[in-house]
Design a protein around this nucleic acid. Structure first.
Length: 306
DNA sequence: CTAGGATCCTGTCAGC
DNA sequence: TGCTGACAGGATCCTA
């Protein structure tokens, strides 16, 4: 779940709590969630936290690193001894409830606090690798540039290479453009007025530029507000990051009016993912393009449209 | 090489 | 109330 803005939020927040602190103990509660030797990281000081796309890397004193990927449902929750808590990742009651709990997979202990890695679906992981091998990690080395560092020409060229792919599926591919996930893909396409089922080959250079700019804007805003799901807690005050409520225009908004034109936002399925859009602002290729080669698919109605 | 679908896993919710 | 199937803020693997 966590997309680039959430992971960046975690990195920034966690930095103050754990950098230059020593890991005293790592407890692995679910074998699948930790690859490698946890004890390699014990009694090591964390020198830095880096982010590569949606992955985090903690560099340790002894030349090894801990790579963390939260995938769909991962969370990192730092619990200080003196009641302060910093939590981000997949939103849930775990942010404020007692830990460890049933979804806690790995516990990283410090002398003055504890970092919990929670992950309901166990898709995420932590792994121990050598710091010098980070750049060659199979996941990290495939990552494309993030939207801020990519030019419209570069993205347009990639679209031409994948001209028969659906544009939404393409921008979710981290080797094409890095950082977008299901939320920001939908939000960016809405902002750029591009229907998610358009074929990449039919997206113009100008639209590509709008899309790239939209991706930057949407994620900038999210990072500035602390990601969609972060939360800083003092004691158990129930506050949460609320990107979805404050900034989302279409994501999880099916049935509500489009903020631009008032038409009802709908939810459909594209490339196997729930996809939100305005059927008026984002013109369907089925109705507009001559090709007619795009298979119409089931709309997961809820705001079916009149 | 690209494109599309299944799959990993647990929990929740809608519909019967 | 209980059961069943669909779905979930990700990425990889397998197939054509």
């Amino acid at each position: 779940m966590p997309e680039l803005p959430e992971v960046e939020t975690i990195r920034r927040g966690l930095k103050d709590f754990i950098v230059s602190k020593k890991i005293t103990k790592i407890e692995v509660l679910c074998d699948k969630s930790f690859q490698g030797q946890p004890d390699q990281a014990e009694n090591q000081i964390i020198k830095a936290i880096r982010r590569f796309g949606k992955a985090l890397v903690l560099d340790l004193d002894n030349g090894t690193s801990l790579m963390i990927h939260l995938r769909m449902t991962g969370q990192l929750i730092y619990d200080g001894k003196k009641t302060e808590r910093y939590a981000a990742g997949h939103p849930s009651d775990n942010f404020t409830s007692a830990l460890p709990n049933k979804q806690t997979r790995v516990v990283i202990k410090f002398s003055d606090g504890t970092l919990y890695f929670n992950d309901q679906r166990k898709f995420g992981f932590i792994k121990n690798i050598k710091t010098k091998d980070v750049a060659n990690d199979s996941f990290i080395k495939k990552l494309a540039k993030e939207p801020w560092g990519m030019t419209a020409d570069e993205l347009y060229e990639k679209f031409q290479r994948h001209k028969n792919s659906l544009v939404k599926a393409t921008i979710l591919d981290q080797s094409i453009i890095c950082g977008l996930g299901n939320i920001y893909a939908d939000e960016s396409l809405f902002a750029a007025k591009i229907h998610p089922e358009r074929r990449c080959g039919a997206v113009t250079r100008e639209e590509t530029e709008k899309l790239l700019k939209a991706a930057c804007d949407v994620m900038d805003k999210s990072i500035a507000s602390g990601g969609s799901t972060m939360a800083t807690y003092v004691k158990a005050d129930g506050t949460k990051g609320d990107y979805l409520e404050k900034f989302a225009q279409v994501f999880h908004k099916e049935g509500t009016p489009c903020p631009r034109c008032g038409a009802k936002i709908i939810k459909i399925r594209v490339a196997g993912r729930g996809t939100h859009l305005c059927p008026h602002c984002q013109i369907s290729p089925v109705n507009s393009e001559s090709g007619a080669s795009v298979s119409s698919e089931s709309s997961i109605k809820k705001g079916a449209k009149k």
